[in-house]
Design a protein around this nucleic acid. Structure first.
Length: 275
DNA sequence: CCTACTGTTACGGC
DNA sequence: AGCCGTAACAGTAG
């Protein structure tokens, strides 16, 4: 489910509710979601730790602990975090529950079970999660058209596939790559090396603009987030192309088309985004 | 029954 | 080395 705007939303909802709380216990129902270290150690190392804050990097969530240790989470396709009182019925596919002080529980559910947790000691080098391989954050002051041209200017493959490369830009997935390319009026199948200077500039502007737009549209209270089980994102009605094959382009009225690029479904306007 | 799916990685081939 | 395409992960939804 989650790309950068959703992961940011989850961070904003969850962080204020867990800050300063300590982990009293952890119930591990599905050890497969723990990537590192071994289940027993993951469990024993985290008990008693106090959560100081949360950070987002690309699509990763990082829980910073008072000790300097940290826990990293990637939600992949269907991972979901809920902060609840202990008496609420569990969601199906709840694999991990953190019992926190004050009778609160941080629950991790994940239908397809692709999501992963990592625990790292203070100062331990993160060779596990993949965070270190990420490219620039879209909101990094150094993120620019020059950066994109340098990293992608000679690439033969489609610009759509390039936008999905986490080692170049952190956080863009299949939904927002389509939204960004529509906003920048660039056909998703265009070879990256064929983009003009003006197109690189439009693209570099559209990336942070679209992502911050959708983060703003996602804004939700802790109560609403919980009652919707963390599953409803309010920005969906604002998507202009993703999932709208066959509807009319909001700009020119042309019929939106779908094609498969790099194995991923891609929707675009054949009139606004010329090949 | 069959296909598609908002993410990422491993692996074989070039 | 680095790029490319595919399979795999596991389950639900249409």
């Amino acid at each position: 489910m989650p790309e950068l705007p959703e992961v940011e939303t989850i961070k904003r909802v969850i962080e204020p509710q867990i800050q300063g709380r300590s982990i009293e216990n952890i119930f591990i129902r599905q050890p497969a979601v723990i990537a590192h270290p071994a289940t027993e150690e993951f469990h024993s190392q985290l008990i008693g730790q106090i959560i100081s804050r949360m950070e987002r990097r690309g699509k990763f969530l990082v829980f910073l602990l008072d000790s300097g240790d940290r826990m990293i989470l990637h939600l992949r396709m269907t991972g979901c975090l809920l902060l609840t009182s202990a008496d609420l019925p569990e969601e199906p596919h709840t694999h991990l529950t953190f019992q926190l002080t004050g009778g609160r529980q941080l629950r991790y559910s994940d239908t397809r079970r692709f999501g992963r947790f990592w625990f790292l000691k203070k100062g331990e080098t993160d060779t596990f999660s993949g965070i270190k391989k990420l490219g620039k954050e879209p909101f990094d002051p150094e993120f620019s058209s020059e950066y994109l041209m340098e990293r992608l200017g000679k690439r033969k493959k489609s610009i759509k596939e390039c936008l999905l490369e986490q080692k170049v830009i952190a956080g863009i997935g299949n939904i927002y790559s389509d939204e960004i390319l529509f906003a920048a009026r660039i056909h998703p199948a265009r070879s990256a090396s064929s983009l003009t200077l003006g197109e690189w500039q439009r693209l570099a502007a559209a990336i942070p603009e679209r992502l911050s737009f959708f983060i703003a549209k996602n804004e939700i209270s802790a109560e609403e987030y919980l009652s919707s089980k963390g599953k409803e994102y309010r920005n969906t009605p604002f998507l202009q192309v993703y999932g709208r094959k066959g509807s009319l382009c909001p700009i020119c009225g042309e019929c939106l088309q779908r094609m498969v690029i790099g194995g991923r479904s891609s929707v675009f306007c054949p009139c606004c985004q010329k090949l």
